[in-house]
């Protein structure tokens, strides 16, 4: 299992499409591939960039899209930007948090959903917007949102 993760990390680091490879680009590649930055990934990225483990942690902790624990089966991001705010994002937050018994951002205990607030998805014309597993979904009303989430959720295996 540990070997699998290591080869997945190496695969992500070594198959980046662009020419310029940096600590940040490696971190983004691993986040995309593995869904989080593990201790093993930090070590591999430090080695690749000829720098210290501390330096890699410094960059990884700065950008808010990096996770350091494996994500749940589904990732729901709720846009919290001003347009969505005016259109009722806080109501949607309340309903979604209620549905998954969460009080803030975070993961459900059963590993079904990771909830994150997003500062702007860029689809303000369809506000309020959320993303379910990175797919943008315009959410209309708090009632309809649960229906859309239930439909899109991947079951735990």
């Amino acid at each position: 299992m540990a070997e699998d993760i290591k080869s997945q990390i190496q695969q992500a680091i070594n198959s980046q499409p662009q020419k310029t490879v940096t600590m940040l680009s490696c971190l983004l590649a691993v986040q995309d591939e593995c869904g989080y930055i593990s201790t093993e990934a930090v070590e591999a990225i430090a080695l690749k960039n000829n720098t210290s483990i501390n330096d890699v942690w410094a960059v990884a902790s700065f950008y808010t899209n990096f996770r350091f624990t494996p994500p749940a089966k589904n990732i729901i991001e709720i846009c919290w930007g001003p347009t969505c705010h005016l259109k009722g994002a806080q109501e949607i937050l309340k309903v979604v948090q209620g549905r998954f018994s969460l009080e803030s951002e975070g993961d459900t205990e059963d590993g079904l959903v990771s909830l994150k607030y997003n500062t702007c998805i860029g689809a303000c014309s369809q506000a309020p917007v959320i993303t379910i597993n990175h797919k943008p979904v315009h959410s209309v009303t708090p009632e309809q949102i649960l229906e859309k989430i239930n439909k899109a959720l991947k079951k735990r295996t």
Partner: peptide, 20 residues
Amino acid sequence: IATFHRPTRTRPIASSGWYP
């Protein structure tokens, strides 16, 4: 009136993560 939720920068980390 409604509770105002805002994101925080802190994220949980694996227990052995921060200190090599």
